[in-house]
Amino acid sequence: MKIQEAVARYLEYLSVEEKSENTVKGYAMCFKRFMQWLDASWGNISNVEDISQTVVRDFKSFLESRTDRRTGKKLAPNTINQNLNALKSLFVFFKGKGINFRSDPISAIKLIPIASQNDYRWLTRQEVNQILHAIEMLKRTGEKRKAMYKAVIIILVNCGLRVEELSELGLTDVVLDSGLIVIRSGKGEKYRHVPFNVKTRDILQRWLGHHGGKSPFLFYSQRSQQLSVRAIQHMIEKLSEQTKIKFTVHQLRHTYGKQVANERGIEAAATLLGHSNIQTTRRYTQPSLQELREAVEGIEFE
């Protein structure tokens, strides 16, 4: 099977399996990098079954010697491992489909050992308050848009939704009287309930007062009945610029996960976040790199 065909079939498989858009894009970039390198270095290889252990080792050496154009530094071990893991998943998939590799490329994939450190960042309570205050101070922005911005932020940081889940929320998925959000389209098609508190209810109620029933979705725009994932991300990017606080959609979710894990433990956090593997949630109980930096600030010797 031609390599290009194999890659296209595997990416289609990932989409059907409802992997996130970012995951599929990440794999696609890894495969593109590999195919470009393969064409330049091993021009005589066109079929996936001809990729040997030697080719895989050569590709790993190439990655280890490559310099990131943005930083001028060598590729981070995590980046190298992502590329190798993408290849491994491709080989495993087609081996399961009956492809007979002339040489076992899977056994040649050796990841770079990386010490386990938590590089996630969560926001402080003061930073979240600054973001909400910045929304109130927005110029040339009507009350309706401000109400929507605050509702988006508060659901992300007080309910920990994924951006895709937020985009898919319907009007009937928010039950104000019970203080619950119903997630019908969670990762892996998992259905769950997420409770919210009085302050969140007040902000949601304010937005619903502006909603007008113009869409079956909780959030919509002038152009569409559903606020897209990209539109939400763009909103967050603009607020990050205006507040001078570097934050993303994911960091708002991480902030929620950290707070729940601290207060009620990782089991509660895993359930509320919709994690299928509790090891994913464990990062919220580990100190972040920022916290480690703060820990050593006062102990350094001159």
Rank of each mutant, 00 (worst) to 15 (best):
N262H: 04
E64A: 01
K2A: 10
Q242Y: 02
N118K: 05
N129E: 15
V182P: 02
I51N: 05
E127A: 14
D104P: 06
S224Y: 01
L132A: 08
I51Y: 11
G72K: 15
E267I: 14
D173A: 03
I203N: 11
A147I: 13
F34L: 08
L292I: 09
Q279K: 13
G188K: 01
E168Y: 07
N197T: 02
D173F: 04
L227D: 03
K32I: 00
D68C: 15
E136H: 14
V163L: 08
Y27K: 08
K88I: 00
V198N: 09
F196S: 10
V163K: 08
E267M: 07
I181Q: 03
L218S: 13
F101K: 12
S185N: 12
V92N: 12
I131R: 01
L11V: 02
R162W: 02
I51R: 03
K258C: 05
S215D: 09
Y10W: 06
G212W: 05
S15Y: 00
N47Y: 15
A76W: 08
V92W: 04
A270F: 02
E49A: 14
S288L: 12
S107I: 13
H234F: 13
Q233C: 10
W42V: 12
G188E: 08
D119N: 04
L273E: 12
L138A: 13
H211S: 07
A108Q: 06
M1F: 07
L123Q: 08
R201L: 02
N81T: 02
V128S: 02
T200Y: 06
T124C: 07
A151Q: 14
V56R: 14
T124G: 14
Q117V: 15
G170V: 03
I106R: 10
A134L: 08
T54L: 05
L63R: 05
